[in-house]
Design a binder for these strands. Structure first.
Lengths: 338, 338
DNA sequence: CAAAGCGGCGAAAACGTTTGAAAAGGTGAC
DNA sequence: GTCACCTTTTCAAACGTTTTCGCCGCTTTG
């Protein structure tokens, strides 16, 4: 590989001058700058990012940490979509991304250690459940610039989808469609869940719809099996609900499976609503009513915040930016009049 | 950060000894090795991967290149699943992964240049269409160890799903279900497509089913819109097919949408088969008949081959490993007798 | 005319490692 | 007591950058 040294001897200048010319420093004349750059290009010079990082302590690499119990990883379509937005924005700013995990090779290291080892300039962390995980809090409290998604950690910027708003949109819509017996299968215990749950309760109250505790059951995010089971239980009640709000779109599939097996059809026999607005929700029949999160923007915003943080462009307490989604009125919630 | 130097002065030995102790070289005594390692751990030492890479020319980073015209990136569920398998296997071997793109920061660089810049030890390349892209061939012909997925490039190992086998499984099954008028919407022109197409033709021939050229139309991979349009055209023929084989599962959704709009139901009015076996195919109603690729294994195998290549464990011509999938008999293909 | 200022450039140290060669220390053989 | 031979340790160079500081020569200023 051709290095800065080769260019220097080719041009008859010192390596310092070459470095400065390539980095557009002001203390090298325009003519030599042009000359050096041209021969650099001609010789096919590429900077060595390792050497540069060693010297500058900046790798232009961002870490991505995604933790969840099920470890579905990249096949988690909501996460993949957010990551895609993050990746695009990061790349547009000259950053590459690297996944952070705890098992590099034989010997395991913590998330924080992995970040330090790889020297990432910052890290985005998204967890579907375990934000209280020891490894995660260690990282969030460390000196590594971090941004969190759907979770607020003091001292770090956060990007959250407006869960209260989303749930309100869904619940209001369901109420307006005339439903009085509304069930909610909520996800694992987490901040996100509690916000949605509270919003669900408050919205029903505001709409003058009674909240039946038997209709509010705990499921899991991104787990069709548990939703399938719970859906069966709900429709098996003496006084079953007329509508079920699912933890998320993917889990909703389990609910649909349960209903199919029971010979019930949606929305004729029962109404269903999801959450997330994943691509496939558009293609279900009937099309799923859901709250579509702007995943691309969530990811992109996270990247912007993180990069701003790295550049120390954020003076005071880092912001919590909220990204709104929008209600997708599919056809899985039936109008049942007043 | 605590460096090797700090450990050296703490232990009263030279940095060379520390380095050798940590890397388990044979020329340092067991007792000092143990002592050094212990204090290293006590001091919270972490190796600096940049410095190491600078010296050794090994980054333990693998590049991932995914090229497609639609640039759906990580939201492409089949690719995401393959990548997930790749990632898991890579991480188990101590490699991290980095995405390769051509726009790092303001100034663009070729894929090859990006690989060199980041110093990846190797790269996996998956393209849904553009394998003949200039940037891709430059990379594949370069000195960067590469493995290709679903494409064979001389000199590099390749992992391919058995497209001929897959299409044969599907076509045979459809024939056995009594279909005589079988349409095939194939994807973009590519090696994969031509293999599937050939297998489709040969299988029908072997099964004694006439191949109707009007039923064989070109669509696009991963593009429900084009499939929707083509499905409409196919069912609009004077003598419409009784079964349509789709380019892939995701595109199949477009076909289902078209049929829904036309008031036709699957499989009563027409049968549908997909390809890929993405997760959502399991949850469609009726469950989609498809050929499920072992995405996890494809990715993992690619990682294994790449790492073997990097370690120069592959003596002769690099292998082309084939990963079989299996037919998923859903309920979207109806038995229509002899 | 001397001093100061400035634009352009180079010397050299430093970042944290790895690694081959050399040195030091010990042991046994002659 | 010398020599050879291990084993263990250190020296020092190297990897490719960035960056501080100083030098040189020229122009400006008082």
């Amino acid at each position: 590989m051709v290095s800065i040294k080769d260019i220097a001897s080719e041009c008859g200048v010192s390596i310092a001058t070459v470095s400065k010319a390539l980095n557009d420093h002001s203390d090298v004349s325009g003519s030599t700058k042009a000359m050096i750059r041209e021969t650099a290009k001609k010789m096919g010079y590429l900077p060595n990012s390792q050497a540069r990082a060693l010297k500058t302590n900046r790798t232009y690499n961002l870490g991505v940490l995604f933790v969840e119990r099920a470890s579905s990883g990249l096949t988690h379509s909501h996460f993949a979509a957010v990551l895609n937005g993050f990746k695009n924005e990061a790349e547009a700013n000259g950053y590459d991304i690297t996944f952070i995990n705890r098992s590099t090779g034989g010997n395991t290291m913590s998330y924080y250690e992995h970040c330090m080892f790889r020297g990432v300039d910052g890290v985005v962390v998204a967890c579907v459940d375990d934000f209280e995980d020891d490894g995660v809090t260690e990282l969030l409290h460390s000196k590594v610039p971090s941004v969190t998604i759907d979770y607020v950690s003091k001292g770090n910027p956060a990007v959250i989808s407006d869960n209260a708003h989303g749930m309100r949109m869904i619940a209001e819509y369901v109420c307006k469609m005339g439903h009085k017996k509304i069930a909610y299968i909520y996800g694992d215990t987490s901040k996100v869940t509690s916000i949605r749950l509270e919003s669900f309760r408050k919205t029903l109250e505001n709409m003058g719809v009674e909240v039946n505790e038997d209709y509010i059951v705990q499921g899991k995010y991104h787990d069709p099996e548990s939703t399938e089971r719970l859906t069966k239980e709900l429709v098996g009640l003496k006084d079953p609900p007329t509508c079920i709000i699912m933890p998320d779109d993917f889990s909703a599939l389990g609910g649909l499976t349960a209903l199919e097996k029971l010979g019930m059809s949606v929305p004729e026999d029962i109404s269903i609503a999801g959450y997330d607005g994943i691509t496939l929700a558009r293609f279900l029949h009937p099309r799923l009513t859901t709250y579509q999160q702007d995943t691309e923007r969530i990811g992109a915003e996270a990247a912007r915040q993180l990069i701003a943080m790295i550049r120390k462009e954020i003076p005071g307490e880092p912001p919590t930016v909220t990204v709104n989604g929008c209600l997708i009125k599919g056809s899985s919630v039936k109008y049942i009049g007043e």
